[in-house]
Simulated scan of single mutants.
Amino acid sequence: MKRSGYMAPEYALEGVFSVKSDVFSFGVLLLKILSGMKNTGFYQSSSLNLLGYAWDLWISSRPLELMDIVMKDSSCANAAIRYINIALLCVQEHAADRPTMSEVVLMLSNELTSLPSPKKPAFSNVRSMVDSIPNPSHWKPETCSENELTISDMDAR
């Protein structure tokens, strides 16, 4: 199963939609807006995706390195760090740890609201199928037929 970059872990792994699944998606979107990067296909660092990259920068006290060059402005550094903190709170692995959307709105609209420290985000250490293959250039997908041709028969329910 390919995991969508916006899919909450409880839905992607168990098919269970929670009231905090939308919060997860919002957090991913906020990180994408702040960084100007896609969530997947992260090859410029040891991080596997945007969530892992943001987390690595956060725990090494370098969150501003995440910001898109267009959005970097030293006068807005505190706001940028606050938004990154909020985004990381939204993408925490366990739904119970994530804020509700109303809490997110409060955090975004009221700078005096204190923010808790985020826990490690979901999917921050998940490798893709290609990354887990020792030598991807020699890998060939397994076929289920002798002539490498398959036929799908579609039946109505």
Rank of each mutant, 00 (worst) to 15 (best):
P63V: 04
T113Y: 06
K72W: 14
S74W: 14
N49C: 07
A96S: 03
G52F: 06
N78V: 15
S74A: 15
K38V: 11
L106T: 10
F24S: 03
R127I: 07
A156R: 01
L34V: 15
A8M: 01
S128G: 08
Y11H: 12
R3A: 13
S46D: 00
G5T: 05
L112S: 14
P116T: 05
R82N: 15
E93A: 07
E146G: 06
I86N: 08
S152W: 04
C144I: 05
L31W: 06
G27Y: 04
G27R: 05
V19W: 05
S60R: 09
S75V: 12
V19R: 07
Q44I: 13
P141V: 11
N135S: 14
N135K: 14
T100R: 04
P141D: 08
A12F: 01
L29I: 12
K32E: 15
V23L: 04
A77L: 06
L89F: 02
D56G: 15
G15C: 03
F17D: 05
E142Y: 13
L13Y: 00
S128K: 01
P136A: 12
E103N: 10
S25W: 00
M107V: 01
R3H: 09
Y83T: 05
S18Q: 01
S61W: 11
S109Q: 10
V23S: 02
P63S: 05
V91S: 01
L50E: 03
S35Y: 07
P118L: 02
A156E: 07
N147C: 12
S35T: 09
W58Q: 05
K2E: 09
M37F: 12
A96D: 01
R98T: 02
L57H: 09
M107W: 09
L50R: 07
M37K: 14
L106F: 06
T150E: 13
S152L: 11
M1N: 09
L31H: 11
N49L: 02
G27L: 08
D56A: 15
D131P: 10
L34S: 13
I59W: 01
A122Q: 00
V126E: 07
I84F: 14
F17H: 07
S117C: 15
E148I: 07
R3M: 13
S45M: 07
R62P: 11
S132H: 00
Y53L: 14
S145M: 05
S124C: 10
H94S: 04
L66S: 08
L50Q: 05
D131K: 12
I59Q: 05
M154F: 11
Q44D: 14
C144P: 08
F17Y: 11
V23Q: 02
K38C: 13
E146Q: 09
I84H: 13
S114Q: 14
S21V: 03
S35Q: 10
S46L: 01
L149K: 06
A8V: 00
S109C: 13
P9I: 04
G5H: 02
S132K: 03
F26M: 12
L57P: 10
M107S: 08
W58M: 07
R127P: 08
E10C: 00
P9Q: 02
S35L: 11
L30C: 12
Y83M: 15
L34D: 13
D97H: 01
K120W: 01
V23M: 00
V28H: 05
H94Y: 00
E146K: 09
I33S: 08
E103V: 03
M1F: 11
E103F: 02
C76A: 14
T143P: 11
I81D: 11
L149T: 06
M107A: 10
W139M: 10
S109E: 06
G41D: 07
T40K: 11
